[in-house]
C-alpha cells in the first residue's frame, strides 16, 4: 500500500496529464466526418512519432564506447524520424487533395 501511495504522490502530475489527455483525445475526435478518417488516422500516426524524443535521449546519453547502444539508438532515431516525417508528409499529401477540390468546387 505504501508503495502505491508513494507512486501516486510521486507521479501525481503525470497521472493528471494522462487522465486529462484521455478525455481530450476523445473530445477532440468524436465528431469527425467519415471523409477525414484516413487523414486523421495518418495525422495521429505522425503525432505518436513523438516517441523519437525518447530515442534522442537514449542516443544522446549513451556512452561513446558502447557501440551496441549507439547502433540500437541510431536505428531508433532513424525509425522515429521515419514515423514523424513520413507520417506528416503522407497526411499533407492526402489533405492537399482535399484543398484542391475545395477551391474548384
Amino acid at each position: 500500500m505504501e508503495q502505491v501511495t508513494s507512486f501516486f504522490n510521486g507521479n501525481y502530475h503525470l497521472i493528471t496529464i494522462v487522465i486529462l489527455s484521455i478525455f481530450l483525445g476523445i473530445e477532440v475526435i468524436s465528431r469527425v466526418p467519415a471523409v477525414l478518417h484516413t487523414p486523421l488516422m495518418s495525422g495521429a500516426n505522425a503525432i505518436h512519432g513523438v516517441v523519437i524524443i525518447g530515442a534522442i535521449i537514449v542516443m544522446g546519453s549513451a556512452h561513446e564506447g558502447d557501440y551496441v547502444s549507439l547502433v540500437l539508438g541510431f536505428l531508433a532515431v532513424i525509425l522515429g524520424t521515419l514515423n514523424v516525417v513520413g507520417g506528416f508528409v503522407v497526411t499533407d499529401r492526402m489533405l492537399e487533395m482535399f484543398g484542391k477540390k475545395k477551391k474548384k468546387g
Partner: peptide, 18 residues
C-alpha cells in the same frame, strides 16, 4: 517527459475512439 506523454496518450485515446 510531458510532450511524449500528452502526444502518446492523445493518440492512444483518439485512436481508440477512431
Amino acid at each position: 517527459n510531458p510532450v511524449m506523454l500528452t502526444g502518446g496518450i492523445l493518440v492512444g485515446s483518439a485512436g481508440t475512439i477512431l
